[in-house]
Amino acid sequence: MEKQKGSAEVLEKYEKRKNEITERLLQFELTGKKGGTALFEELSFCILTPQSKAFSCDEAIRELKKKGLLFKGSGEEIAAILSKKTRFHNNKAAYLVEAREKLGVDGFALLKKLTFDGSEYHARSELMKNVKGIGWKEASHYLRNVGRGSSIAILDRHILKNLRRHGAIGRLPKSLTPKRYLQIEKRMEKFCESLGIPIGHLDLLFWAEETGKIFK
Rank of each mutant, 00 (worst) to 15 (best):
E101H: 13
V131C: 04
C57P: 12
K72P: 05
R124S: 02
K129F: 11
R148C: 08
S151K: 06
V97N: 12
E63L: 11
E126H: 11
K72M: 06
I81D: 08
H89M: 11
K102S: 12
V105A: 15
S74G: 11
A123V: 05
R87T: 09
L82H: 10
L114S: 02
S150E: 07
N145R: 04
R87F: 04
K112D: 09
G75S: 09
L69A: 04
G118S: 06
E59Q: 12
W136L: 10
V146P: 10
E98H: 13
T86Q: 14
K72Y: 04
A80F: 03
G107N: 09
I134P: 00
L69Y: 07
R87P: 09
E126D: 10
L96R: 06
R148W: 07
S56P: 05
V146T: 13
C57Y: 03
G149Y: 00
L114Q: 03
E98N: 15
E76P: 08
I81F: 03
T115K: 11
L64P: 01
N145K: 09
R100Y: 14
K67A: 02
G147V: 00
K65H: 08
R87A: 14
A60G: 13
S56G: 10
K132C: 07
E126R: 14
K92F: 11
N91W: 15
D106W: 08
R144S: 00
G147K: 00
S151V: 07
I78V: 14
A93H: 11
G104E: 12
E138Y: 02
H122N: 04
G104R: 06
D58M: 04
L111R: 05
N90L: 13
R148A: 01
G68P: 10
H89Y: 05
F71P: 00
K113L: 15
E59S: 04
E101C: 08
A99Y: 00
I61K: 04
A93C: 14
F108A: 02
L127Y: 03
W136H: 15
G73V: 03
K113Q: 13
S119W: 08
N145D: 00
G133S: 08
E138P: 08
W136F: 10
M128L: 15
A123H: 04
